[in-house]
């Protein structure tokens, strides 16, 4: 086995050979900066958002998240990271929860999209929204729309028999347990740390449903 230091030695030799002492460097590189002449391309897309048909003409680069927020002015769905690393942008598309930041709007032609605004409103809360209030399943509230969309979908996933990482028996029907809910909700980060209360809220709704 080679010692850890050998690769690093090679690295230093490599640097010496390629003239690492050159102080100036230009960013971005020529490769990254080329194609500046390209002009934006737009495309039409039509989908249903919270039971309303919406027709849009968008820059092809527009994510589903930005289309919802910036084009349709539905700011409930949040941009926490824009890279699928936090879950704040979770929406339900064709019955399945997804990260709307990692999907282009134009890829959802004919899709049926539900955002947190489609679940309920302050005067008429969805049972999951009411349970989050009751159990204080949030603090700053920024991850909350994503947590709630995810929670609603998670109960459907369990009902549909979709297994999870913590299943002891892959072939058995999944149950609603603390461990199951925690694993399934792990794609929704809450930095305020309301996890314990969120699981309490979901458990209550699951019980009510059963």
């Amino acid at each position: 086995m080679t010692k850890p230091s050998e690769i690093e030695l090679s690295r230093r030799q490599l640097l010496a050979a390629t003239g690492a002492s050159v102080a100036a460097a230009t960013y971005p590189s020529a490769v990254a900066a080329q194609a500046s002449t390209q002009t934006p391309s737009t495309a039409r897309v039509s989908f249903t958002v919270n039971n309303t048909v919406r027709k849009l003409e968008v820059d092809t680069r527009t994510t589903l998240l930005d289309a919802l927020r910036e084009n349709l002015r539905l700011p409930g769905t949040k941009k926490g990271c824009d890279h699928g690393q936090c879950g704040a942008c979770t929406v339900i598309v064709d019955g399945k929860r997804i990260n709307s930041c990692l999907s282009l709007a134009v890829m959802h032609e004919g899709g049926k999209i539900t955002t947190v605004e489609g679940l309920g409103n302050p005067k008429r809360l969805h049972p999951m929204q009411a349970a989050f209030v009751k159990h204080d399943g949030f603090q700053c509230g920024f991850c909350t729309p994503g947590q709630i969309c995810s929670a609603v979908a998670v109960l459907d996933e369990i009902k549909a028999g979709i297994p999870s990482h913590v299943a002891a028996d892959l072939n058995a029907a999944p149950q609603i347990s603390n461990a199951e809910l925690r694993e399934r909700m792990s794609g929704n980060i809450c930095r305020c740390g309301a996890y314990s209360n969120i699981v309490d809220a979901i458990t209550e709704v699951a019980g009510r449903k059963a």
């Binding site: 879950g87 929860r97 990260n99 999870s164 990482h165 794609g187």
Partner: peptide, 16 residues
């Protein structure tokens, strides 16, 4: 295979 898939990413990402 099922176990490997379920150990990866998140529910949202696996749906896509």
């Amino acid at each position: 295979l099922a176990r490997a898939l379920l150990a990866g990413a998140s529910g949202q990402l696996r749906n896509r």
